[in-house]
Simulated scan of single mutants.
Amino acid sequence: MKTILLIEDNADIRENTAEILELAGYRVLTAENGKMGVEQALANRPDLIICDIMMPVLDGYGVLHIVNSNPGLSGIPFIFLTAKSERVDFRKGMELGADDYLTKPFDDTELLSAVEGRLNRFRNVGPTAADPTSRVQPNELNHFLDSAQSAGGLQALSVDRKAHRVLKKQFIYTEGDEPTRLYFLKSGRVKTMRINTDGKELVTGLHGPGEFFGYLALIDNTPYTDSAVTLDESELIYIPQSDFQQLLMAQPGVSRQFVRLLAGRVDEIEKQLLGMAYGSLRRRVADALLRLHEQLAGGPIQLSRDDLAAVVGTATESLIRTLGEFKQDGLIDVSNAGIRVLQPDKLRRANW
């Protein structure tokens, strides 16, 4: 039985919608605001989320952002409920990764058709458009590849699904290498980076469990423009280049997934470059901490000072000094467990 999480602050709509879904054979969890909805999702991962946009405490956009950023929730199909029909609301929701919209009032048929459509798409394709980082639960990778193979009609998919253990601080590939495979990170952490002629390092990406990486060079059929190094002892699954290319050609859903992934990476890198060009050091450090804070769902940021400095694009000594100032201001906590952001709103709003 599929579980649906319904987040709606209007009691009548919430109860009526839940009743329709239960009659259709779904298990329904309900929440009256976004904060309670996120707590419900974390406690019991649903197969689909239906969420109102305008709510107290935490609105629907905030819920979707948390769902996409949390490794334990990302990839869940997401349907927005809204009483508005303005284009700006639709555009904002789709940019954030919503799978579908239902405009209130809606009838039973519209509701059930939207739900069935999203669940079927998730079952047949694997990761959904609601997952801009293409994060997949490690135990779902085989299902994803099997589904893509079946949907694409491939006769043979020689994907090496064995997990390869790679020790900490080992290069997976280096700038200039010819790409031979797509990488799926089952456990551990990997950074991608570039090194300039002076030997200075700039971290261009941080990847955690459930993420693909190394796909840009495969799609473009060009040598790697960066290097990938393990930050921890990691487990990687290798998908040969030929099989990845067959997946892209045979299954449009897989292609769309990686197009969205590429678009997201380009946007992230553009913001990083703009920050380095025009942002103050405090602003750049704050933005880097906020990105990692959201990526880790509020957990401690466990990066060496050298790696964090490479993310920001500054000297390690400058980073340490800025972290000390943030700690003194009560914005962060620094301990052996890592860096924990205490006041993200103040970091975000500060005018440095």
Results as ranks from 00 to 15, higher is better:
G153S: 02
Q170S: 13
L141H: 01
F144E: 03
N142Q: 13
V159P: 00
E140D: 15
E175I: 08
H164R: 14
A151N: 06
T180M: 09
Q155D: 15
S147G: 04
T174P: 01
L157V: 08
V159G: 01
S187M: 03
L154Y: 04
P132E: 06
N142P: 04
Y183W: 09
H164Q: 10
S147I: 00
A156S: 14
S187C: 01
S134I: 02
S158N: 15
A148Y: 05
D177A: 13
R181D: 11
P179V: 03
D146H: 09
S134E: 06
K168A: 15
L145Q: 01
N142A: 15
V159N: 07
Q137H: 15
S187V: 01
F171Q: 11
R135V: 05
R135C: 03
G188N: 02
V136I: 15
K186Q: 14
V166S: 00
E175C: 13
V159S: 03
F184M: 02
A148H: 02
L182F: 06
F144D: 00
P138L: 04
I172E: 01
F144Y: 12
V159R: 05
N142V: 14
Y183G: 02
G153W: 07
R161S: 05
R181A: 15
T133A: 13
L185H: 02
P132I: 06
L185P: 01
G176H: 05
K186Y: 11
S158P: 08
F184P: 00
L157W: 07
S150E: 10
A156T: 14
F144V: 14
G153P: 01
S158E: 14
L154I: 10
H164Y: 08
A130Q: 07
G176K: 03
S158I: 07
R161F: 06
K168D: 08
P179H: 07
A163I: 15
E175N: 13
A156D: 12
A130L: 04
S187E: 14
R165I: 10
E140F: 11
D131K: 01
K162E: 14
A151Y: 07
N139F: 14
S150K: 12
E140V: 06
G152V: 00
T174V: 13
L145W: 00
N142C: 06
L141T: 01
A151Q: 09
K162R: 15
H143C: 08
Q155L: 15
F144W: 12
S147R: 11
A163N: 12
E140H: 12
K162L: 10
A130E: 09
I172P: 00
L154W: 07
Y183E: 04
E178G: 06
S150Q: 09
K162S: 13
G152I: 01
E175M: 12
G153K: 04
T180R: 12
L157F: 12
H164N: 09
L145H: 00
P179Q: 05
V166H: 08
R165F: 10
